[in-house]
Simulated scan of single mutants.
Amino acid sequence: MDLDASMRKSLEATQRTFNTIRTGRANPSLLDKITIEYYGTETPLRSVASLSTPDSQTIQIQPFDTAAMAAIEKAISMSDLGLTPNNDGRLIRINIPPLTAERRKEFCKLAARYAEDGKVALRNIRRDAIDKIKKQEKDGELSEDQSRDEQEKVQKLTDRYIVELEKSLADKEADILKV
């Protein structure tokens, strides 16, 4: 059944979204959502530069084309990350300041919102699967008992993925709150 694969993909997408939330440490995945205007096309930052973390408080960006420096700097400044890029002509460095307690709480709320979006996606997958099962029952392909058993399997699978998602949320919150 492709239901398991769909739910796995939804969970992984939510976890990737969690990675874009800042914690106290530098992490190149913070910049995953940033796109720049590169020769008239919106291009992901990873496609035009290499990202690294020389230490726990710095992200280093080395563009493949120095002509993109200004666009990269502008995109980072305009993002909602609240980071200031420093350009030395070859590299762009971003210092990650320690988070305040208030900012940590905001990021926890953001993570909870992303988790809720992930749960909604899982529930939508569940609804579609149950609708499909009910249609099969209506068309006579499944008996009432088989239909009920299949629906229970779908619900158990959904519950398992929601528990996994909540565990990921708890891990991310712990990561954000760790000073």
Rank of each mutant, 00 (worst) to 15 (best):
Ala174Tyr: 02
Asp2Phe: 07
Leu81Met: 08
Ile96Met: 06
Lys33Ile: 02
Ile36Asp: 05
Ile72Ser: 05
Leu165Gln: 04
Ile34Phe: 01
Ile125Leu: 12
Met78Glu: 14
Lys132Thr: 13
Cys108Val: 15
Arg126Ser: 12
Asn124Thr: 11
Thr17Ala: 15
Ile133Phe: 09
Ile76Trp: 00
Val120His: 10
Glu12Gly: 02
Ala101Lys: 13
Pro97Gln: 12
Asp32Pro: 06
Leu99Pro: 05
Thr20Arg: 05
Thr53Glu: 14
Pro44Cys: 07
Gln155Tyr: 05
Glu73Lys: 11
Asn86Asp: 06
Thr23Trp: 06
Val163Lys: 15
Ile125Gln: 05
Val48Asp: 10
Leu157Asp: 10
Asp149Ala: 11
Asp55Lys: 02
Lys105Arg: 14
Ile162Lys: 07
Ala49His: 14
Ile59Ser: 02
Ala129Tyr: 06
Glu173Cys: 03
Lys138Trp: 04
Glu73Gly: 09
Phe64Gln: 10
Leu142His: 07
Ser50Met: 09
Glu12Lys: 14
Ala67Tyr: 10
Arg104Ile: 08
Pro98Lys: 12
Ala170His: 08
Glu173Ala: 02
Pro85Cys: 11
Ser47Gly: 06
Ala5Val: 13
Leu3Tyr: 02
Arg16Cys: 09
Asp2Glu: 14
Gln151Cys: 11
Arg46His: 12
Arg104Phe: 07
Arg22Trp: 04
Pro98Leu: 06
Glu106Tyr: 03
Thr14Asn: 04
Glu116Asn: 13
Lys109Ile: 01
Asp171Lys: 15
Ile133Asp: 04
Ile94Gly: 00
Ile34Tyr: 02
Ile21Trp: 01
Ser10Cys: 10
Pro44Trp: 07
Leu165Ile: 03
Glu164Phe: 07
Ser10Tyr: 01
Leu122Asn: 05
Lys9Tyr: 09
Ile34Val: 11
Ser143Trp: 06
Tyr38Glu: 03
Ala13Thr: 15
Met78Val: 04
Lys119Arg: 15
Pro28Ala: 08
Asp149Ile: 11
Lys33Met: 06
Arg123Glu: 13
Gln146Gly: 10
Thr158Asn: 12
Gly82Lys: 09
Glu116Pro: 04
Leu30Tyr: 12
Gln57Gly: 09
Asn124Gly: 13
Lys138Asp: 11
Leu177Ile: 11
Lys109Leu: 10
Asn95Ser: 11
Arg126Ala: 11
Asp128Val: 07
Gln146Met: 14
Ile21Leu: 13
Arg113Ile: 08
Arg46Ile: 09
Arg126Pro: 08
Leu45Gly: 07
Glu144Asp: 14
Thr41Tyr: 01
Leu110Phe: 00
Asp2Gln: 09
Thr58Glu: 02
Leu31Ser: 00
Lys105Ile: 08
Arg16Pro: 06
Ala70Trp: 00
Arg113Gly: 06
Ala75Ser: 10
Phe64Glu: 05
Glu106Asp: 12
Phe64Tyr: 15
Asp149Phe: 08
Lys109Phe: 04
Ile125Phe: 08
Ser47Arg: 14
Arg8Asn: 10
Ala101Cys: 00
Val154Pro: 04
Asp88Gln: 00
Arg25Thr: 08
Glu102Ser: 01
Lys153Met: 08
Ile92Arg: 01
Ile162Arg: 03
Met1Trp: 09
Tyr114Trp: 07
Glu166Val: 01
Thr23Gly: 04
